[in-house]
Design a protein around this nucleic acid. Structure first.
Length: 814
RNA sequence: GCGGGUGUGGUGAAAUUGGUAGACACGCUAGACUUAGGAUCUAGUGCUUCACGGCUUGGGGGUUCGAGUCCCUCCACCCGCACCA
């Protein structure tokens, strides 16, 4: 052995000890778990990654380190911890790559998974790898298809010809949530509206349930609020309007419904507006070329265009009039694209005096504005506040809320309307015209669809040669000609299989359930195991999933709960969003800015423990924070000092017999601090406490072997490789993963001498040392006896004396 | 426009929830030591002043013996939604 090699064994050498312990954990199955009813369970979940070709970025280890620390801590506290990892492996990039190169997405995905796994394992996370799942694996999507069957049987999945967000560049439709500012979320390509045959899931049936469930969740308020807004419940009424007869319009039976949250303002409705897609237009203005032109122009606009032109408030009079049911006044019917066909009934009653949008439109087209709620200046802007009703016949003098109640009962009595709740939430567009996704367990018959029997699952994704859509615009699966034809076993009839596939969200909707029983080939999960492990106790991931994954998952889980297939209503009890890590230039990390930090580089140079510790030390987990390479060196030095605190430069233990009592006391304060901070996921201050202890121990001559052991245990969730190595050097043969978490003794946490602040008139003048348990009077006397203080109060009149035990003395005088 | 959040040294941040503002780090300054390594050690470091002292948590006001923390008000920035009637 050369001197250099020898030195490396002696000094803190993460590059050597980290692979050593990773191997140990893997060979000993240290972190594999089973149901054990003698122990309390704790389920800690990470949002599993999409294994992209770019590999891990520093954002991944942030959340993963946090959950790993909690997992290790909980294990040491005697919890049976389920902490799994897997792959969200269906997805667009692998398919895009296949389109370009012809490489099968499965090949690309497998390669990326193995790279991701290598990187994740190099960070020493304590996952139970026996539970690894990949959503693109037939053994997995078998059960995704099975859950779809359950939804279908329950009437929650249907086919509809609906206008969808079509992205020509990606060759697929997108869900509303996947469209940002009229562009695709992935790639930023243009999205247009186009009617197409699509699978849709009736998430709207669960709007109320999803809203209700939010209240008791331990989630960030911002996420709960985003979901509430997305569901967008509003209470109001539908009102039926008849269309007035005139010379062009003989049909007297025409009518339409509007939705309003302000039925109290019905007397102020001076016109109505139909969305350009509204079917009534063709009945009242079929031959009006101007109207038809307007409608066509509006329909052909992309969503982006419509958004950009939103302020313009364009519209056109149809020539027809509606009859306001409360006063039989004839009011003009307009078509305008500020009214959306997708919300309510696609038609509104416009009350320009009390709705800003209607106000702007009325001003532009010179329509009457009638005030019906007093209190505003309607010549200047719409008044949406409270007040007394005016110009409203039987509603006059009522407040808005009472007027609402009264008008609704009037509408009901006269069969002109009802109370109604509307949601912004739309049904979930569930099909994609792609190859790399779960096939539907569905065949198309002459008169609809037929669900395949459970025994025919999984419907395995067939091999195809090309991944493009067919020339006649069918999804790529239409190219799998052998697969496409399906012969019904009972009837002998031949049907065509569904060629759409499911969206990427399908697999991630329920992966946390599969982890519970990942190898079960009889059912999706065992009921008893589910009952033991669920719900997820702690779920950490990025805020970008606030309304997508987290709403879809909850939806499926609620359905599964209603079917009696899971034991709890809400899957994720506590949710934490880790904040994004920015580049050193305070900008979002991106290749084009050249500010990307690769975790591999840190692991190879300073070690995984350093990376883990640094990411936790940067600041609060939830906060957005910039990377700082210099600071990485700071935590690396701390790990070095920790090593040197226990190991001397010959590689031998340097623990001492007679440890300073100060060190022991500092240690117990540290146990308390670290434990309390871990409970609150305040990793940055927990690490600061460990640093403080390390500094104090160095100052006061070092550690006894018992203290060294305790310190090692405290450090181990954060820096597990260093922890295990020191633990071994301290004479232990087995992993520290299940050694009991240290407890502090209250007596040792107490300080005997305390520094007390002495203020005069609220300003700090001096500090004094006092016994921790000193009486109030004695403390005051001590403060007054202080040389500096006594000289300052001499000859002054003392008005008030405040003594706060263990904190301060404040003398008020003049 | 609506909703959520954040403003503390040169930088990342901390503050027992109304009680010594700036813990712990980074950076910087000076020094020590070295077979030069992302070394290590020692001292200093909010601003201001020669000093005694004074000032300081985005600005202004208030409550209190005492406010980063509570109340009012204004300002700046970040995130989400956005013609949802």
């Amino acid at each position: 052995m050369t001197i250099k090699q020898k030195l490396e064994n002696i000094k803190y050498n993460p590059l050597e000890i980290e692979p050593k312990w990773q191997k140990y954990w893997s060979e000993n199955n240290t972190f594999s778990v089973e149901v054990d009813k003698s122990k309390p369970k704790y389920y800690i979940l990470d949002m599993f990654p999409y294994p992209s070709g770019a590999g891990l970025h520093v954002g991944h280890p942030e959340g993963y380190t946090a959950t790993d620390i909690v997992s290790r801590y909980k294990r040491m506290q005697g919890f049976n911890v389920l902490h799994p990892m897997g792959w969200d492996a269906f997805g667009l990039p692998a398919e895009q790559y296949a389109l370009k190169t012809g490489t099968h997405p499965a090949v690309t995905t497998r390669k990326n998974i193995s790279n991701f796994k290598r990187q994740i394992q190099s960070l020493g996370f304590s996952y139970d790898w026996n539970r690894e799942v990949a959503t693109c694996d037939p053994d997995y999507y078998h059960w995704t298809q099975w859950i779809f069957s359950k939804l279908y049987e329950k009437g929650l999945a249907y086919v509809d010809e609906i206008p969808v967000n079509w992205c020509p560049e990606l060759g697929t439709v997108l869900a509303n949530e996947e469209v940002i500012d009229g562009k695709s979320e992935r790639g930023g390509f243009d999205v247009i509206r186009k009617p197409m045959r699509q699978w849709v899931l009736k998430i709207t049936d669960y709007a109320e349930s999803l809203l209700d469930g939010l209240d008791d969740l331990d989630w960030p308020d911002s996420v709960k609020e985003m979901q509430r807004n997305w569901i967008g419940k509003s209470q109001g009424a539908v009102v039926k309007f008849r269309v007035a007869k005139n010379e062009n319009l003989a049909d007297s039976s025409l009518d339409f419904e509007v939705f309003t949250t302000r039925p109290d303002t019905l007397f102020g409705a001076t016109y109505c507006v139909l969305a350009p897609e509204h079917q009534l237009i063709n009945k009242i203005a079929k031959d009006n070329q101007d109207v038809q032109n307007y409608v066509n122009a509006a329909i052909n606009k992309s969503d982006r265009q419509r958004q950009e032109e939103a302020k313009l408030k364009t519209g056109i009079f149809t020539g027809a009039y509606a009859i306001n049911p409360v006063n039989n006044k004839e009011i003009p019917i307009y078509v305008a694209d500020y009214v959306l066909i997708t919300y309510g009934s696609g038609a509104i009653m416009a009350v320009p005096a009390h709705d800003q949008r209607d106000w702007e439109f009325a001003k532009k087209y010179d329509i009457e504005i009638t005030e019906v709620v007093s209190g505003g200046k309607i010549e200047e802007e719409a008044y949406t506040g409270n007040g007394k009703l005016v110009n409203s016949d039987f509603l006059n003098d009522l407040e808005v809320n009472t007027a609402k109640e009264k008008i609704i009962s009037w509408l009901v009595e006269n069969q002109l309307g009802t109370e109604k709740i509307n949601y912004k939430l739309r049904d979930w567009l569930f099909s994609r015209q792609r190859y790399w996704g779960e096939p539907f367990p569905i065949v198309n018959t002459k008169d609809g669809q037929k669900l395949l029997d459970e025994s025919e699952l999984p419907v395995v994704l067939p091999e195809i040669e090309k991944y493009q859509p067919t020339t006649d615009g069918q999804p790529p699966l239409a190219r799998a000609t052998d697969w496409l034809e399906y012969t019904d076993k009972e009837t002998g009839e031949t049907y065509l299989r569904e060629t759409n596939t499911m969206p990427q969200w399908a697999g991630s909707c329920w992966y946390y359930l599969r982890y519970i029983d990942p190898k079960n080939n009889k059912e999706a999960w065992d009921k008893e195991k589910e009952n033991y492990w669920m719900p997820v106790d702690l779920y950490i991931g990025g805020v970008e999933h606030a309304v997508l994954h987290l709403l879809y998952s909850r939806f499926w889980h609620h359905v599964l709960h209603d079917l009696g297939l899971v034991s709890c209503r809400e899957p994720f009890k506590k949710l934490v969003n880790q904040g994004m890590i920015l580049g050193e230039d305070n900008q979002k990390m991106s290749k084009s800015r050249g500010n990307v930090i690769n975790p591999d580089d840190i692991v190879y140079k300073q070690g995984a423990d350093t990376l883990r510790l640094y990411e936790m030390f940067m600041g609060p987990l939830e906060q957005v924070k910039p990377w700082n390479t210099k600071s990485v060196g700071g935590v690396h030095r701390f790990l070095n000092r920790s090593w040197n605190l226990v190991i001397d430069d010959k590689g031998e233990l340097k623990t001492i017999k007679d440890e300073d009592i100060k060190v022991k006391k500092a240690l117990h304060r540290t146990i308390k601090k670290v434990t309390e901070e871990l409970e609150q996921l305040k990793f940055n201050t927990a690490i600061a406490a460990l640093m403080t202890f390390c500094n104090e121990a160095n100052e006061h001559g070092g550690l006894s072997i018992d203290s060294a052991k305790t310190f090692t245990l405290l450090l181990s969730p954060f820096a597990p490789h260093l922890g295990e190595e020191l633990w071994e050097k301290l004479g232990n043969k087995e992993t520290l993963a299940y050694v009991a978490w240290p407890k502090w003794e209250d007596d040792l946490v107490k300080l005997d001498k305390i520094t007390i602040a002495v203020q005069i008139n609220g300003k700090l003048k001096n500090t004094i040392e006092a016994d921790a348990e000193i009486e109030k009077d004695a403390l005051l006397a001590l403060a007054k006896a202080d040389e500096k203080i006594s000289s300052l109060i001499e000859g002054k009149q003392i008005i008030k004396e405040i003594v706060v035990p263990k904190r301060l003395v404040n003398i008020v005088c003049k």
